[in-house]
Design a protein around this nucleic acid. Sequence first.
DNA 1: TATAACTTTGTAATCATTACAATTTTAAAC
DNA 2: GTTTAAAATTGTAATGATTACAAAGTTATA
Lengths: 135, 135
Amino acid sequence: MINGISIEEYLRQKGVNPSYQRIRILECLVNSKSHPSAEDVYKELIKEIPTLSKTTVYNTLELFADKGLVLTLSIDGNQTRYDGNTLEHGHFICESCNRVYDFLVDTDALTCEGLDGFVIKEKHFYLRGICSSCV
Amino acid sequence: MINGISIEEYLRQKGVNPSYQRIRILECLVNSKSHPSAEDVYKELIKEIPTLSKTTVYNTLELFADKGLVLTLSIDGNQTRYDGNTLEHGHFICESCNRVYDFLVDTDALTCEGLDGFVIKEKHFYLRGICSSCV
DNA sequence: TATAACTTTGTAATCATTACAATTTTAAAC
DNA sequence: GTTTAAAATTGTAATGATTACAAAGTTATA
Ligand SMILES: [Mn+2]
Ligand SMILES: [Mn+2]
Ligand SMILES: [Zn+2]
Ligand SMILES: [Zn+2]
């Protein structure tokens, strides 16, 4: 369930054929607050879908990002992480435990100078530091 | 030259022994507006320092980041990029040409909710889109 | 000069991601 | 319900950035 509709219907609305694997992968992302990597998603799902291929996870996540179903986070230096929450919000990564946290922020309040003629498609506000459970 | 002092003196001030390679690598970063990757720095310098090792470039950039001489940018999905300008500013990456541009932004104007007890060490404001020369 | 600490180098290993071709599944046409 | 083509999934191999590691070179100090 997301925005009151099923995952399946949500996929259709975004122009993606809701195959079993796609439903399960998207479900993983919208139910998780952990901003998982492709590997994380694979490890989670392989427990219940023993035939799942890692390639499918990678391809599907790329497809979802293209269709605007998920956000791609480059916050972590060595792996791409994905977010099922496409509403604008900020991210904090803990350099101790590597967990990624959400927080509320309104970047519309910012004025950017020096980008005349640039087309902005995505905004990302990232913080790096030590989270409250690692302090 | 940076902040009116030599690269060599700048390294010393930050507690880094100014070896020839370190001076040349830092020079690359402070003179460039391109936010180069380790590979970029290596390709640039190997022309004049034929004995330079890529490992030295990687190790040195990591050392510089630890000592606060450069910023590490995770804006580009598949390689780390470095910035010799450690003053706070925003970054725009063009998804067509992959160039990274600077812009002015004051993130102190932002209020973040939900980070009580978190220690913030770095702030990054990234934009993704199409730059004016690629539109 | 002898010695230890520091720095650089080259090679091999690691690990995330992508390329690609084969197989399977799904849906439409007959 | 069989045939056929398109779509989706799978497994394996390749790629490419980064890291590990040990040897060689350099610098500073006793
Ligand atoms: Mn998030
Ligand atoms: Mn910059
Ligand atoms: Zn933590
Ligand atoms: Zn461009």
